[in-house]
Amino acid sequence: MTDTLLEIDHLSVDYETARGDLKALRDITFDIRKGEIVGIVGESGCGKSTLISSILRLTAPNTRFREGEVRFKGQDLLKASERQMRDLRGADISIVFQDPMQTHNPVLSIGQQMVDIQHRSKASKAEKLDRAAKMLGAVGIPDAQARLKQFPHEFSGGMRQRIAIAMALMSEPDLLIADEPTTALDATLEVQIIERLQELQSELHCAILFISHHLGVIAELCDRVVVMYAGAVVESGDVREIFHDPKHPYTRRLIDCDPGHIKERARVLPTIPGEVPDLANLPGGCIFRDRCDQAMPRCANEVPPLEQLREGHHAACWLNHEEVAS
């Protein structure tokens, strides 16, 4: 495929710790095409953050890339030099981080920070400030020119996240990574910011890798979705197909647990019982086995491979094999 932008190819990442190697990511494979919005869902600790820091190579020092490749426009980022990576960051690939309250430097003005990130541009400082003000206006910050002089603590959380989005889109990147950009915000702000993001995306035609555990937002925004569990992809495919016909029990349970999906007034909110397995000491067989209500003897012995069930729809579960067999 020529329009593929980012390919994650059999990526395995460990963290070296005193307890032994933490297998944070195992055999992750998926891709993002140009201008496409791909969502990643999963519980906390499923490896979402490791995945995005691996793409930008902003990982902790104890990170080990065991296997696989991260190809951006055909170039393997894991083999790129630090210099090449720095040229990509904030230029071709931008990121919006999770916590808007901590994401900006507290002692530099917003204007200064927005000028600094244009360090590749040869424009004068005044021109850069103008561009910054335009970007702030585009994400819905009123009176942007005057507010450039202000410091992060003078903005609300929602404003700060808008600023973060403005900063990320300033270079008109090919890929925007959004790491739970609305998790720390109120529900009403969340809708506003998602809508703004959609508008800007259709203007700039950048691809977005959108990480969230809010299924409603994913369904609203994304073209395709990747479901991760305990450091592995358990299902991926077209967003409608996955929501209407999930092929992995974990995906099904996630959808059942989403508050937006619960129709009747429930006495107890549904949950998935059990815990994510210990990544330093993974059990054999299927990783979801202990929490799965449809587990079979086979699940304890063999790891189900991620297989294509239909065009573009992959799942890793033996149940699908039973169906095919019978």
Binding site: L56, L58, R86, D87, L88, R89, G90, A91, S94, I95, F97, D99, Q102, T103, H104, N105, P106, V107, L108, D116, I117, H119, R120, A164, M167
Partner: peptide
């Protein structure tokens, strides 16, 4: 802190990250 990660994620060179973004705090 997270804001240093942000500065790096925008490709700001390490000298400036250390001397301006971090040292000033």
């Amino acid at each position: 802190e997270n804001h240093v990660r942000t500065a790096r994620a925008f490709g700001i060179n390490e000298r400036r990250v250390v001397l301006v973004y971090a040292l000033r705090i």
